[in-house]
Design a protein around this nucleic acid. Structure first.
Lengths: 258, 258
DNA sequence: CGTACATTTGATCCACTTCAAACTCGGTGG
DNA sequence: CCACCGAGTTTGAAGTGGATCAAATGTACG
């Protein structure tokens, strides 16, 4: 693991790293910007040391001053209940914006923690705000990310309120698959960056239930699982069990592009 | 009821109605604007005929072109599952902004329906966007509303994922109470604009469960209920059961004011 | 190579759902 | 004015999906 972070570290910190040349730029904030504007945005972005697995990007209550875009790796966002339990509200993959829910607060209302070695672009919020004064497209892009997050949250409420265990897990896998696909990774073979425990926490299920549904899905030959490696063998039926049409998942992924 | 809407109709449509003189302006979009800017905002806002109970403000899939601020009455927002069930995602009280989740879509991703006779201010989104180019405070206010909605959604996920029936209902009542309080209504005596069914739908519970918890809370002498009239008799203990400290609920209500 | 932690599997339990029926109340028409 | 209607609400009894408890198995890392 240390080897891995050593390998990534220097790369992601190199002065060469630019939005302009970033493979994620078509999914990320620069999305609808022209080259000049991308350059302006680029100037305010800082590339941080990679986070190691388990490190916090920020904690609930930390003073808010930056939003982040994931470059590689993955994050979990979570809130704390009064009795100290955590509730995971989101998993973040590369190109996704993190920290928007703190925008009108002085403190982050949630915490964000690396699930694996993770690199992020740090965007000082005050400067982003200034810059977006002059760049309507950038502004639109930020609005867009936020309203997308709201829409996803509503879908999550629906999941938590109406779906049973199988539907939840299927939805989760289908959603991850769509997001990987969109990012150019294989949609049917991927590695889960989170533990069963974290999946259960996120989906409002006990670990044991998640595990049981995984095995049930394997006997149904929807998926093949080996530890954190997942292979989707019957995509159509998985989406069916999830209670979604494939196009819906894609749509929600695509909407951000306007 | 027709009498009521006749009574309200002309008032809310009168040319006199202005953000400047609106009693909600300190809670609503004009919040942080100076007088001149309020006037600019005011010019793009249209006051619509009041909606009657059960009428839609917009439906899921309607083409998106306006956001709305509730002036009086209340709304429920909901999404449809594939099998035609509705999932209520929000109830909206006066001064609250509705429709922000559609911002980067051509269509509203959710529906919004009046729970009672309801008046709204209609804000054409394109014009709001233009105006916010020139008014950083307005822009900030929109960002603020959206990030507040995101934060509330995360709290809702926590509720749906971790809280039991009593905690859910208590949270619901405590939250409503705080919102009424903030709007200058009595925090301890109010009328629920929604049915038990809608409460259950929103909280991820069966109607019967909601009803049972209401009666249990009455025998515990936390509240007194008569139909839709609710009187909170032991506010502290209600908030305790909800798993929140009073200040938290207030905080989340206050955050929008920056 | 062993210890701690994550995952799986099995057995039991329980909070909430579902089904069924009685009740309440605002409205409506005879 | 009152009987009646239907929708909304309450209450009771029975069923169940997933939680919890417990223990075995698997796996990563020092």
């Amino acid at each position: 693991m240390t080897a891995r972070s050593l390998k990534m570290g220097p790369m992601s910190l190199s002065k060469e790293t630019r939005c302009m040349t970033c493979s994620l730029s078509s999914l990320c904030l620069p999305l609808s910007l022209n080259l000049e504007d991308i350059d302006l945005l680029d100037k305010i972005i800082k590339r941080r040391q990679p986070l190691k697995k388990g490190e916090h990007l920020f904690r609930q209550g930390d003073s808010f001053d930056c939003v982040y875009a994931v470059r590689s790796g993955s994050l979990k966002n979570y809130i704390m209940t009064n009795d100290g339990e955590e509730q995971i509200t989101n998993f973040h993959l590369p190109s996704e914006l993190v920290g928007l829910d703190g925008i009108d607060c002085t403190q982050y209302p949630i915490a964000s923690k690396a699930l694996e070695t993770t690199t992020v672009c740090e965007i000082p919020y005050a400067r982003l705000q200034e810059l977006s004064s002059d760049l309507p497209d950038l502004r639109r892009q930020i609005f867009s990310s936020m309203s997308k997050e709201i829409r996803e949250d509503k879908q999550m409420m629906l999941l938590l309120s109406k779906k049973n265990a199988e539907e939840r897990v299927a939805t989760f896998l289908a959603n991850l698959s769509s997001r990987f696909k969109r990012r150019g990774y294989s949609p049917n073979t991927f590695r889960l960056p989170m533990s069963r425990n974290e999946i259960g926490n996120y989906l409002g299920l006990a670990v044991e239930t998640v595990s049981r549904v995984f095995t049930r899905f394997q006997t149904m030959e929807l998926i093949a699982v080996n530890g954190k490696e997942v292979h989707i063998t019957d995509r159509d039926r998985l989406f069916e069990v999830a209670g979604l049409l494939e196009c819906e998942a894609e749509d929600s992924a695509r909407l951000i592009t306007g």
